[in-house]
Design a protein around this nucleic acid. Structure first.
Lengths: 351, 351
DNA sequence: CTGAAAGCGCTTACAG
DNA sequence: CTGAAAGCGCTTACAG
């Protein structure tokens, strides 16, 4: 690996200070003027000084950070990341944030001390402050399904959420639906915002006014789906179809429907989002917008590892295609003569 | 953390050789007699010498090794391990073996180089050779749901599999079943063997001859359940109930039953094993033997971390209780007058 | 705040 | 095969 690494002596020489002074800066000791400290830190940074004790780049560890592992969405992503890390000979450290903000100085310092070759972040709580901290780590960071708009200093991997929202809506419109409800997870997250935009675009394109009453957002788990689904079903003019922000949330809609004696798909069509295993277990099997979750995580992990090995900067933003997987939860709306003159526009059997 | 760690000089002194000689042994250099090398290695070992470059104990990393992450069983275990590691301030490295043997010299050397504070092993393929290698690591190892009999040099955490098999069987017997089929995963694994023993004990206790034709084993995934379930349902005298080695396998039995027009639970009762999320998604909801998977992994992880921090040797074997969770897939056998005079003997709502 | 000096743990030639 | 000697990268205690 070329040179044996910069030494503290070289840094001292370059900074015009003594070796002990650099040592003090390195160890956060007192007794160094702010100006000197800053100058030395800059040099340390520039020359890529690697603390001998600390296993810097080359630890072989990639950090996979996700809000929680409690959903099938999360485990699908984890599987992809783990498989790719293994394939490329890296070890994957799995951390959950449990709602805590990401990129706190503590955590970044912990990563620096332990040694991390890169970070795959699947989190909604990335603080703006956290971004700056993370950049200080000097290891590649790739975001999966990132939140917040604003320019990212990091590369991102996502799905074509807008197209997914549009395709789900068109699938229902082609079946003959006109009153289509749309429920999503937290609307602050770009993926949900994008899908909603896709829905609205499809509705407009077919000259259907998107009744704002038919759009709800909240929790994307089963509970949220049950509550938001109930709200829609209890409207004076309920929708004949509901598109949901996740498969789990869609199952909550199933529950709300069952509680009201509404049959799926005879009285109500339901479309999920993600295509996790759940879709095939529940009855009727759930039509959904497939996100290639494992592939997204694989791609992000590959980017991080290749960058950590000196690869060139990849596409700053990668979007993998979604596709509608038609199963048994969607059908023409009640009262339709023929079962929707138009054929279902895409049928894919699950992998 | 007491002393600053053994130095090469101390080892040299103890071995009656010079510092450079110890250094050579440490770095695998030539020019050391076999006898000296051996003596030094032993001292290094005994005194717990920690190579400065290598982040030995204290890396804060715990390795979680599992055959694959593709089942809900696996992710339930992972969740428990991850949560406990986070709680105790350790980072969890997740590795899948994908059927490869565990404890190969390569892998052990990799762990040594990278630094690992301990290993939680959830694997069926632990080689006997691997055990010796793993012991050389000098970090705590705890097995979850271990395979093979023979005395383990490592602590183990498991569920009360024997009682689980017995309880599932008794539950069905109390409902009035007499012909009860039993299908399991690979019978080499002690957990499956133990459950089968529990089944046979219960059958004997109720003076029911366990027809060997009613016992099958193979793959514990959906496919396996479908195939093994089909074999039982196609018998001249098919069982009125089937106990399965996993919930996924039980779902395979659902498929086999559906393909033959056999209704669950009217014509056939089905009991699963594990109590993963799947049980609640499928229809009818699956009665199952609950294994506290997350708790098992938590316990194993806690043991490893505490041992790595100097805790005392824990119980060599820990078994957490299973319990029958009664849902909709079990009922009295067809042709029964009253719906089983005996009440279902345990009802637990899922967490 | 700063650095000359001593020291620590280890490695690298190299002489025997 | 073995180790005295020199050296390396860093830290520590202390004088200015």
């Amino acid at each position: 690996m070329g040179s044996r690494g910069v030494t503290i002596a070289e840094i001292a020489e370059a900074a015009g200070v003594s070796v002990p002074t650099v040592s003090k800066v390195l160890n956060g000791r007192k007794g160094v003027s702010a100006a000197t400290r800053r100058a030395v830190e800059r040099l340390l940074d520039e020359r890529g000084y690697e603390r001998r004790g600390r296993p810097g780049p080359g630890s072989g560890l990639i950090d996979f950070v996700i809000s929680s592992l409690d959903t099938q969405w999360a485990t699908a992503l984890l599987r992809g990341a783990q498989a790719e890390a293994a394939r490329l000979g890296a070890d994957l450290v799995v951390t959950t944030t449990q709602g805590r903000p990401v990129g706190t100085p503590d955590w970044v310092e912990h990563l620096a001390e332990r040694g991390s070759d890169g970070v795959v972040l699947v989190v909604s709580e990335l603080l703006d402050a956290g971004r700056a901290e993370l950049e200080r780590l000097h290891v590649p960071v790739v975001l999966v399904d990132p939140v917040g708009s604003g320019s990212q200093p990091f590369a991102t991997v996502a799905a074509t959420d807008w197209a997914g929202g549009r395709d789900a809506t068109e699938h229902l419109i082609r079946l003959g639906h006109r009153r289509i409800g749309f429920i999503t997870g937290p609307i602050e997250q770009v993926c949900h915002r994008d899908r909603l935009d896709g829905y609205q675009a499809a509705m407009r394109r077919f000259d259907l006014s998107a009744d704002p009453d038919l759009v709800r957002h909240g929790n994307s788990l089963v509970d949220g789906g049950r509550r938001l689904g109930a709200e829609l079903l209890d409207l004076a003019q309920p929708p004949t179809a509901i598109i949901s922000g996740s498969d789990e949330q869609a199952y909550g809609v199933y529950q709300a429907a069952r509680e009201r004696g509404v049959r799926i798909p005879e009285d109500l069509s339901v479309v999920g989002f993600d295509d996790v295993e759940l879709c095939q277990w529940i009855s009727p099997q759930l039509t959904t917008v497939r996100q290639p979750l494992a592939a997204m995580a694989r791609e992000a992990t590959r980017m991080v590892i290749e960058l950590s090995r000196g690869g060139v900067r990849p596409t700053p933003r990668l979007e993998l295609a979604t596709s509608v997987v038609t199963r048994a939860s969607t059908a023409p709306p009640p009262g339709t003569r023929r079962p929707g003159g138009t054929a279902r526009h895409e049928t894919r059997s699950p992998a």
